[in-house]
Design a protein around this nucleic acid. Structure first.
Lengths: 218, 218
DNA sequence: GTCATAAGTAACCGAACGGTTACTTGTCAG
DNA sequence: CTGACAAGTAACCGTTCGGTTACTTATGAC
């Protein structure tokens, strides 16, 4: 009998690789590239350090794998794809912002990895993988936005890049700069209500901010 | 004759301490706490490692000194204090945002240190020092904002913390997440025009977003 | 001059790092 | 049963880390 499809008792390559990958993600997210150690990763994974290197190459190789895997997770979630059905600008803004917040809440490691990565110039991030993480909601946003501009409801100086930027900024800072930001503003980021009220407040603010006088007062 | 006020030829405590402090700021900003090494810092400063430890204590002590010194620099700049004379909401928003961007452009090390610090829980940042970095522009913002709300020009759900948050978010992400954000949005952050157009666009967007219909259309 | 003192350094320590090598052992086709 | 191969490990290597110790040397008051 072959091993194929069966769960071997003590020795299992795929399962071990999965455990290593998981342990590495936790370690890199927590301590960054230079702070993480292969000794701790192998300890977390419950195997020897030599095995980690055998399966994933050098520390840098392992880091690259972890980072791009996390980005790929973002692009595969279902709620993201549901956004392609949105009808109005404000509805879509709220949907995207809400989804960005939800993803970051469910994957606390993600924002941390992005921060670490920016601090060393994003040289380990595969551009194609990162672009895929935008999801179909953004293509939808572009078409709806341009449509609203033609009808004179949205101001002409608004473009998709700037909207995406502010949505990302609001989200990223919430999760990766909460410590200094709490000292600065006093906002209780750990409170669940803060997050939902943030989404509502800022999506409305953005919708009003990009609208023409006609689009808003008429 | 005493050393007081004179520039000694080869041995000079204050000057050496200044060089060490400068070298440490560059090193910590570039590589973070765990990535930085005392050997490199002493090499940059042109002195021995033992002297670094003698003057600043442990690596952690040195890091704390560097971090809080940078924050103190923010609170001492002149343009920040000029904001206390602003008259209108939109004028003040533009002033604060413009100044935040200017400071970060002039002090690239600052945003990096803030990112590193958030990644290890902001445990080395002195809260009093951080709060002082808000400057008088924010107290002015509160009073002008509340005044405008009483007159019915600004919506009631707007508060200073949320405005400060979005201003900081727009700025912080511009400087500390530019690498991943460029891949994501295609925005050319390195271009000088991008920054000034950002300040104009978002301060206008915010001003319109927080205004009541009356405050905007009337 | 000279001498106490402070500025500054070379050499070293144990620990921890990333990575390699030589080895053991579970598993399965025949 | 058995042997070959893959899964997995213990022990080690050279290097670098933060930090200490014992030492040199420039400086200024007397």
């Amino acid at each position: 009998m072959t091993t194929k499809g069966a769960r071997t008792q003590t020795r299992n390559k795929e399962e071990t690789q999965r455990r290593i990958s998981e342990a590495a993600a936790a370690e890199f997210s927590h301590l960054g590239y230079s702070g993480a150690t292969l000794d701790r990763i192998s300890e977390r994974a419950g195997c020897s350090k030599a095995l980690v290197i055998r399966y994933f190459g050098t520390k840098q190789d392992l880091y690259r794998t972890v980072l791009n895997t996390k980005y790929a997770e973002l692009s595969q979630r279902e709620t993201f794809h549901a956004l392609s059905e949105a009808e109005t600008v404000s509805e879509l803004l709220r949907g995207i912002l809400s989804d960005l917040f939800a993803f970051n809440r469910e994957h606390p490691a993600f924002a941390r990895l992005v921060s670490w990565e920016n601090l060393n110039g994003a040289e380990h991030l595969d551009p194609a993988t990162a672009k895929a993480a935008r999801g179909p909601g953004w293509a939808r946003l572009r078409s709806i936005l341009e449509d609203a501009q033609e009808k004179g409801m949205v101001r002409g100086d608004v473009d998709v890049g700037r909207i995406v930027y502010v949505l990302q900024a609001l989200t990223v800072v919430y999760f990766s700069n909460r410590h200094t930001m709490k000292i600065l503003t006093g906002i209780p980021f750990e409170s669940p209500e803060t997050m939902s009220s943030f989404v509502g407040f800022y999506s409305q603010l953005l919708a009003r901010g990009i609208a023409t006088d006609e689009g808003k007062c008429a």
